[in-house]
Design a protein around this nucleic acid. Structure first.
Lengths: 189, 189
DNA sequence: ATGAGCATGTAACATGTTACATGATTAA
DNA sequence: TTAATCATGTAACATGTTACATGCTCAT
């Protein structure tokens, strides 16, 4: 079980509801874990049943009430045990790269368009992550924060997210340009 | 269905057996898709039943016989339809980044060790990918190959793999160093 | 009144993982 | 003879995805 630990780690940043969690996991990629909304509701229910998170009702004005969850001591214990165990290899599945791999036998048009779209998404995510870094480190510069800050985990994982998105953006643009230039040449010949 | 397309794309590089496929998918990460060996055998059987790949028996001396598979015309059609459809978002799940995200509440020792291990794996994969690039482009330089080569898909996806592994290596080393320095300081204080 | 965002789920189905099972050859 | 590599699967189980379902409030 691994989603479970990703959820616990996310909840360390502050109690939140299932719906807020889906925003953190972004209906797509947080910076290191993909999970669909329905998975998160189900996992929260299981975590609560196992006593690893505790929920409490919060009344809201002008909106439906919500249940927010906090990691319990048992939850932290679970995370500690998880962290000491050997990690599973990085799981990556990239639909778009499959297309690129096979592109020589394919119509490059749609693939080029998809690469541009993905590049924009990556750029948007990068901008978001960079803002998050600024928010996390407050008025310290990065070096001082990493030396003296008291909660650097999210900052470090976010730095990883930045690296990833930057490379995705650049790779998509480079690949799209390469394919476009070839398409232009074969068009002329 | 998506594994199916990854397998078809991989088979474009030349017919191969189930076992050889598991090597290409590496019992871990190829450069853009993770799949376990058992998945591949199962998927090949399904692809053959659907007529998207064709298998033939190859007798070997000194080794068990094997069945090798080739993509059929229907298989290429399937890939073409896939490539024209909107791509699914990148799926990423990183066990190690979850630990880093939660590291402030954890014993950093094991996490630092895991980061070093991951960095070495990434470096090894990077070296492998770089060799593959040289093999793929033959005696052309990269620019000429990308302009004039007749099968650039695998080269482009491999370039993506290089970028990814390089960033993983560097992020792991930077993160491990940051955590080590803090651990040294809190030890002294 | 229409749609978007907040808020939470269930149920059916597809996919992926783990453990088990077999058996040959070659190198140490 | 022991382990490693080649070669291929089945079966049970765990996980993840998709479609459906509900109902509130706020802005247009």
């Amino acid at each position: 079980m691994a989603l479970r630990h990703a959820v616990l780690a996310a909840l360390l940043d502050g109690e939140c509801s299932g719906y807020q969690l889906t925003k953190i996991f972004d209906v797509g990629v947080s910076n290191f874990w993909y999970a669909a909304p329905q998975q998160l509701y189900a996992e929260l229910a299981k975590l609560e049943a196992d006593g690893l998170v505790a929920g409490r009702e919060v009344a809201q004005q002008g909106r439906p009430n919500k249940r927010v969850f906090t990691v319990t001591e048992a939850g932290v214990g679970e995370l500690a045990a998880f962290a000491a165990a050997p990690p599973k290899p990085l799981l990556i599945r990239d639909d778009l790269a499959v297309r690129v791999h096979a592109v020589d036998l394919l119509d490059p048009g749609p693939v080029i368009a998809q690469l541009h779209e993905r590049a924009e998404e990556a750029a948007a995510k990068l901008a978001l992550f960079e803002k998050m870094l600024i928010r996390l480190r407050g008025d310290l510069d990065e070096e001082s924060f990493l030396r003296e800050g008291d909660r650097i985990g999210p900052y470090l994982s976010c730095l990883g997210g930045c690296r990833l998105e930057r490379e995705i953006r650049d790779w998509c643009l480079h690949t799209a340009r390469t394919l476009s230039e070839r398409a232009a040449r074969t068009g002329r010949e």
